[in-house]
Design a protein around this nucleic acid. Structure first.
Lengths: 215, 215
DNA sequence: ACCTGAACACCGTTCAAGT
DNA sequence: ACCTGAACACCGTTCAAGT
């Protein structure tokens, strides 16, 4: 029932997940879903539950490292594995943001993360702060503030555009000219999401490890 | 025009911001808005523009610190000031997440952040990574993964509930019992958002400062 | 140039009714 | 116990028509 909902969202995006579409995919006619499910909110709760359970299944083995130093490696592996799951369900982060109550799967997930912190010798207090600090990164995603502006403002010569932008956003333009290698004119679409995600994640994990050691 | 849209959202929440409601607030009847604005997406673009410009106005003075070491202080002040703006518009982060194109105000904002990094001696490459790492934190908010579950599962004795949860989520329950002081049974609603935000922010800024110094 | 009214396609949801 | 059809309230949006 919920798994077909996930499939509908995977294929047509989240906006394709309407009650009528879902009913069609279930080969049942229209409003029969309401017998099994109270409302659409429950469907959205359900699909995130399915996705998070996929994450849990993705990392069953690495839950409890023996050595204290191994917490970082295990945490990193767990989070990056979850990220792989999310890449198969690109709509999931947005839906998860809108869930206010914590589902059972999410609680299990955070419990596992906490377990890793504890295995690494974190106090509950520090582990609690750490969980907040990681935020959505603990579930394998980060709000991607940067997307290319594919609209008209760039439909003329990109070099001319850069020049025009230079007075308004001097540092941004300078950065673009210094960092971008392969695609000189392509505004901001060239960022390697995986690299950036790991950079931020490691920054967090290294900082937390330092706090752990200093007590 | 857009400012009244912000007011409507401030008063009634984001779900109250419908074209018909907005028209009523403008004391104009219904569909006249479409003469001034192409569609609702443009309205949402507009309101984030207004909010981000509020952020820009909130920190005009601290844009360029002389000393290299001051970058962190200035960045922290800028971000926390933006956070104060967002507290007046609690619906704004969710809307900003859904914008894909970068508005002029957002570009200006990021340009200012970049300027602070540069003033601190960051290379453009490191500053670029830093921007990604900060993510939404650069704009004063972080995805708050934790909200209390106010629904029925807790309508019996909280201590009994904790006991029942203990086998499924041992680390979570243990953490709750160790960290929570003032409100022992109140699931997870007691977290101090401001404290947690600053903890995560400082973790990032400290890590970035360390990378900056090591070259 | 600016606003309006009626209408359309679509959404989540209710409810009495079928088997 | 499970499904259906018709209907309701609401949404964003179109378009020909008004001043």
């Amino acid at each position: 029932v919920l798994e077909t909902a996930v499939r509908v969202a995977d294929e047509g995006g989240i906006e394709a997940l309407t009650m009528r579409n879902l009913a069609e995919a279930l080969e049942v006619e229209a409003m029969s879903i309401y017998y099994h499910v109270p409302n659409k909110e429950a469907v959205l709760d359900g699909v995130t539950e399915v996705v998070v359970r996929e994450m849990l299944d993705a990392t069953p083995a690495i839950a409890d490292p023996e050595d204290e130093e191994g917490w970082k490696r295990a945490m990193r592996a767990k989070i990056l594995a979850s990220r792989q799951v999310l890449l198969r369900h690109p709509w999931a982060p947005a839906v998860m943001e809108t869930r206010k109550a914590l589902s059972v799967a999410v609680l299990e997930y955070y419990d596992g993360v906490l377990g890793l912190f504890r295995a690494g010798g974190f106090s509950y207090d520090l582990a609690h702060h750490a969980l907040h600090a990681l935020g959505s990164r603990a579930m394998g995603y980060a709000p991607d503030s940067f997307e290319p502006d594919t609209d008209d403002p760039g439909h003329d010569d990109p070099m001319v555009l850069l020049g025009a932008m230079k007075e308004r956003f001097p540092h941004l333009v300078e950065m673009l000219q210094n960092v971008s290698h392969d695609a000189p004119g392509a505004t901001l679409g060239w960022c390697d999401d995986q690299t950036e995600f790991e950079f931020g994640l490691d920054l967090m994990l290294d900082g937390l490890d330092r706090l752990r050691r200093s007590g």
